[in-house]
């Protein structure tokens, strides 16, 4: 068995990242989970939050994702995210503007679906702001 997991981060527009890592911690819909080689195959939702990539028992990379899905198999962990930004490239002003916009959208939402969408966006913006401080 290899001692690395192939981690892939994919956005609708392109494959953002594909590399072999020792461990990756993903913010799952039901709580964070770490993926090591040989993980049980699993499909799960991802909530807005930070993905930590570990190398040599230290966090090598932190990436903010705004929700999506993760597919885990023994040797691979693929995260489908609509947007992903490296943590050190996050911008607090941008996050605040986004939060504001999401709030406005929620106010303006006049049906269930638009409301649900706006709430999702709001959660993403909140997580982004929280990630700025991390």
């Amino acid at each position: 068995m290899t001692d690395t997991v192939q981690f892939e981060l994919v956005s609708p527009a392109k494959l953002l990242l594909s590399e072999d890592v020792e461990m990756v911690v993903v913010p799952g819909g039901e709580g964070d989970f770490g993926v090591l080689p040989g993980h049980t195959p699993m499909l799960t939702t991802v909530r807005p939050g930070i993905i930590d990539i570990y190398e040599n028992d230290k966090i090598a990379k932190r990436i903010f994702v705004e929700g999506g899905f993760a597919e885990v198999s023994g040797t691979r962990c693929a995260v489908l995210a609509e947007e992903a930004i490296a943590l050190d490239e996050l911008n607090r002003d941008h996050a605040e503007a986004r939060l504001q916009k999401a709030n406005d959208a929620l106010q303006a939402a006049d049906n269930d679906i638009a409301k649900k969408d706006a709430e999702r966006e709001l959660r993403a913006a909140e997580a982004m702001l929280a990630a700025c401080g991390a």
Binding site: P12, G28, G29, E30, T40, P41, M42, L43, T44, T45, G68, F69, S73, E82
Partner: peptide, 29 residues
């Protein structure tokens, strides 16, 4: 092969519920 192996978290219905709207966007994209 995969289907037999996968664990779903939360339930299959919940994931599908989340997945389908995104899938629509992806199809249109």
């Amino acid at each position: 092969e995969l289907k037999a192996l996968y664990e779903y978290e939360p339930s299959e219905e919940d994931i599908l519920e989340e997945l389908l709207p995104r899938n629509l966007s992806v199809q249109i994209f």
